[in-house]
Design a protein around this nucleic acid. Structure first.
Lengths: 195, 195, 195, 195
DNA sequence: GGCTAAGCGAGACGGTACGTCGTGTCTTAGA
DNA sequence: TCTAAGACACGACGTACCGTCTCGCTTAGCC
């Protein structure tokens, strides 16, 4: 299918240097303080190398963040046998890891990029939203089978609520605390209504 | 204290034209496609008139959006006597009005502005977050009194969850549907766990 | 005819600073070592101000050189009564002043610009060639009337020969010497053929 | 002394293709519109092959032009017995062939290359200037011997005047005409002064 | 009516980032 | 060892936008 390899191959070193530089600069200065020239300088590459492989700054940030955040495979659901506890733990862990520094700074930049650029938005959904929904589906299915979770629950709506809670913490630059994580898990798990 | 009014008074017509032009342009092109020059041109004013009354572009967008979005006094909580129904209706309405076009486009721009300017962020919290929290507090207090809402509910966490759900819809540029609004209200009200 | 003056008027200071900076930089580094950014920096202006008033680097150099070179109104023909002597003096003077530093460096840059850009070439002809031809016409006409100059002489061809001799000295970066100026005047005045 | 020839031999086809492509592109687009990548593409070679055999773009242009222009052995002086006529014919011919298209475009590019690169400048003098001066010396010497040329004539000054006249035509992108060639020959041969 | 003060539309200004282009070097696979 | 292909570092280019400035003019209150 693929024709023979011709010409100098893409430099993996440059690719990594660019993503690393982007990560550091995003943490230091945020998405708007970020400059393609600054990325290239810190990465020790030319600007053109950035534009050869990514269409713009937003795409670099998207790739950088989604690689760094999602690599911490916090997405996989625990399975201790207690479906309700698994759910609570997973919600709390996801919240903690996404909403706490330094991931929060990266995620904040990604949110800005997504708000500006619908391609980033789509990619965010594919590479973060989808895995989260998938893990959540697993947990909810398991919980429903065990009779611990309401069978009428809507997975997508739940994922929105969960991701949204994180996003608010991240965008508002709240210091995430254990109690806030707990409270959010409480709300999502237990709802507002009395039994 | 304030000296007598001297010189030519501020043109209210210009002020309105600027805010209107900003709203239209934000909807057409988003925060990043927005240009101070374009605002001035469409409003039929000079650029300086913008900077005489607002510190920068973000502030104009903030004022424009918060006036347009919040003035639709969707914040006030309904009071039909049925606390649980009031809560559900209010959640659904808030979601619909903030997350659906054209408000979603305005709100998305505001989110970007807030992410890059902490003054906008503070103002967003004061003029949108606080009223929402306040209305939610009213509704929850009323619900707890009526025994329909769990007394252990955390208002701030709930507000985060609710606002976050909207934010996700806005940033992800989802087309919000009635069923999604309903599902989100379900999750927030009922939680995930079986009774 | 001209409508009322609107908006901030063009800054004459900036214009002069740009032309001065260009002149200095051309002398220092030549046409190719010249950078629009460097011009702007030394002039203390923004790059955009250059592009607002000139289409490109070549045009700036053209204006700068033609203002600096032609202002030295060496173009005016002397009139001592002795037409042949006037002609010789004028040829030698023109050669000396155009081919000697620092004018030679400016003129060399202009030659490069003209070779690259036909608009500069046209302008060079209008603003330097034409006045030279005009002065030469005066001198030749006077000389013919006095019976000192051949009546069949072609002014344009003579101007080409004269300007060309200068240009060669300039482009080849010859050190112009009095004897070379004299020799060239000899050739042009006396021709090659024996009487 | 020289070791045995090892490895793949230099491709003469590539060399010719490069020079041909350069010539065509110079005529089409001039020195500045010329791109090493474009040369390589049209020649069907890689860029590196250019840089393996020439130090830079200017050198390629120099070689290309000096091969194409000078090979047309217009330099050799005619010898019909009539020294004055020989001189006139040679001046006219030299002017025509150097200043008329397509040679003028090539020569114009060479002038630009020479202005930015002293090696090209030196090579231009060696490969074009020197032969011209040499031919001129022959003609003048012959003419002086025949009593047709003034014995006080300065060869270098004459060469400057002649080359300069061409240069002006080339740089000013004049359409050279037969009458202009004639007129220039007249000026150089006869001078301005009346007998 | 004249005077002073401030707002207004227009648009030039200094500055910064962008994304593109061209040069000359480099690193592949293959001849 | 040369070749075509093409990625690379570097750096100039010309454009876009921001927020400031300077014009002439307008609109008010006060003498």
């Amino acid at each position: 299918m693929s024709s023979v390899q011709r010409g100098r191959p893409r430099s993996e070193a440059a690719r990594l240097a660019i993503l690393t530089a982007t990560r550091d600069l995003v943490i230091e200065r945020g998405f708007d303080g970020l400059t393609v020239t600054a990325i290239a300088e810190r990465a020790g590459t030319g600007v053109q190398t950035l534009y050869r492989w990514w269409p713009d700054k937003a795409a670099i940030v998207a790739e950088c963040v989604l690689e760094n955040v999602v690599d911490i495979d916090l997405i996989t659901a625990p399975d201790t046998g207690d479906a309700a506890a698994d759910l609570r733990v997973w919600i709390r862990d996801s919240y903690d890891r996404l909403a706490a520094p330094p991931a929060s700074a990266l995620f904040r930049a990604l949110a800005v990029a997504a708000a500006k650029d619908s391609r980033v938005s789509a990619r965010l959904d594919e590479q973060l939203g989808a895995p989260l929904r998938s893990a959540l589906t697993t947990l909810l299915t398991r919980g429903i089978a065990a009779g611990r979770v309401r069978s009428t629950v809507d997975v997508d709506a739940t994922a929105d609520v969960l991701l949204g809670a994180m996003m608010i913490a991240i965008v508002a630059m709240q210091q995430p605390s254990a109690s806030r994580a707990e409270a959010i898990a409480d709300v999502i798990l237990g709802g507002l209504l009395a039994d």
